[in-house]
Design a protein around this nucleic acid. Structure first.
Length: 439
RNA sequence: CGGAGCGUAGCGCAGCCCGGUAGCGCAUCAGUCUGGGGGACUGGGGGUCGCGGGUUCAAAUCCCGCCGCUCCGACCA
């Protein structure tokens, strides 16, 4: 993509409404624009990141055996009356009336809808277990949206729902998601710590939140220092091996870690100076809640002996749009964003320091074509801006690699490449630079 | 939902107290010079001062109402 043609409205100054770093940088880097409180448009650069994050989530869900579907954003109030949550949910739920005066709502979550789908179509114990997910926009009418995309009212969320015959099967479904979550966050360069969590209005008796430690986190968290050394980034296991899966989960929960609501002061005190108090950004939440929805909604199947079995359910959420902000909170410096390779909107930023100069244009154009041919996503800054402006833009938008072509380098047959994360710069002969970047 | 603050050009702000018909920096457009970390100069364009009402000869400025946004707290992926 040529930057001269790309829609990338960067801002030199900080918009006054943005208080935290990820919000400021997303606005400045031209990733999002606010439409109204807590509701954002995703501009091309932000949209690319959102899609990358979404795709990683999708791949790890698929790997763990979940199946993707897509449910609507608008749901009938009727269903929510069946589960009893229509009144429980309160003002956070956006209620809508259609032209026929039917009561509808913009879904804040999908337990009712998925349960209806399953109860209508799954009738036999032989059809279980099932784990179904979708990645869809949700709306929760927060009293006080803030922190940009991290606490919006409209947000993109992956949510899935497991259906099992018994508690043992449900536990395994839960454990698989636990591991899928660790893998998902690790692929985004994030260390998300699983913590025993409050189950909230969704209910249930087994729940973990996945928290990224960051100063701007919304809630206080308490962690055993030893936990910070546990390798959560290289989890790999055969999902069908129930015992092995359980061992991994046990291993990753062996140290104390709790959110504010679940924190046990006495247990924390026992840790002494091993207790770390920090703040966390919640990027995922998993629940096992048994028959909380399947019972009132009558989601049952026939068992082997013709008996009626009420389904055991769990639900699992990942805040996809929130993750984009969370990644920035975890990875930035004074000059801008530092994207982990896996979610970067482009792999390489190619800077032509002297657009309009025949030799520079030719060298940059050639490198641009070759990198693209090698399968790399390249943002080519071919604008007539000054060198400083181009460097500042590249640092701001945080592409993992920068390749710089200028008259000095062209004369010597060299290209300078810079790693955004470390600032390390290397001046290499053109073909070596190409090999390095294309590798 | 309680408390506070702010709405003036795309962004950041001044002007408001003490009424006289709008200004600065950045961005933007044209041109010239520049050219390895948001460069310089010259000349342009862009604002029903959030909306509605009131006071006044005259309102960005004073008064009333509304709307929006932000911050602190209680609540949430």
């Amino acid at each position: 993509m040529r930057l001269s043609q790309y829609f990338l409205p960067t801002l030199r100054e900080n918009p006054s409404e943005a208080q935290i770093v990820s919000h400021r940088l997303m606005l400045r880097a031209g990733m999002v624009r606010q439409s109204s409180a807590g509701i954002y448009s995703w501009l091309p650069l932000g949209h690319r990141v959102l899609k990358k994050v979404e795709q990683i989530v999708r791949e790890e869900q698929d790997r763990a055996g979940a199946q993707e579907l897509l449910m609507p954003t608008i749901q009938p109030a009727e269903l929510w009356r069946e589960s009893g949550r229509y009144d429980d949910y309160g003002k956070e739920m956006l209620r809508i009336t259609d032209r026929h005066e039917r009561e509808m709502l913009y879904g804040p979550t999908n337990e009712e809808l998925i349960t209806e789908i399953v109860r209508a179509s799954i009738k036999s114990y032989r059809d279980l277990p099932k784990n179904l997910y979708h990645i869809q926009w949700k709306f929760r009418d927060e009293v006080r949206p803030r922190f940009g995309v991290m606490r919006g009212r409209e947000f993109l969320m992956k949510d899935n729902y497991s259906f099992d015959l018994d508690a043992k099967g449900a536990r395994h479904s839960y454990n698989k998601m636990f591991i899928a979550y660790l893998r998902t966050f690790a692929r985004m360069g994030l260390k998300a710590i699983p913590m025993r969590a409050d189950t909230g209005p969704i209910g249930g008796d087994l729940s973990h939140e996945f928290q990224i430690l960051a100063e701007t986190g919304e809630s206080a968290v308490f962690v055993d220092k030893a936990f910070l050394d546990v390798d959560l980034l290289n989890v790999n296991v055969d999902y069908d091996d129930q015992a092995a899966v359980q061992r991994v989960v046990d291993d990753c929960t062996r140290f104390y870690a709790a959110t504010d609501e679940k924190h046990d002061a006495a247990q924390g005190a026992k840790l002494g100076d091993r207790l770390v108090t920090a703040r966390g950004i919640e990027v995922g939440h998993i629940f096992y809640f048994g028959t909380k929805y399947s019972a009132p909604l009558k989601a049952t199947v026939a068992g082997a002996n013709g008996e009626t079995i009420t389904l055991e359910m769990g639900s699992y959420g990942i805040g996809v749009s929130r993750l984009v902000g969370a990644i920035i909170e975890a990875s930035h410096d004074a000059n801008g964003i530092i994207w982990p390779d896996s979610v970067a909107p482009f792999d390489i930023g190619l800077v032509n320091l002297r657009s309009g100069d025949a030799e520079c244009d030719a060298a940059a154009g050639e490198l641009y074509a070759k990198l693209q041919k090698a399968g790399k996503a390249v943002l080519y800054d071919d604008r007539g801006e000054s060198a400083g402006a181009k460097f500042a833009t590249m640092d701001l938008i945080g592409l993992p690699w920068q390749a710089v072509i200028g008259p000095r380098g062209v004369a010597a047959g060299k290209v300078e490449i810079k790693r955004r994360a470390t600032g390390e710069k290397l001046e290499l002969p053109t073909d070596e630079a190409l090999a390095r970047l294309a590798g």
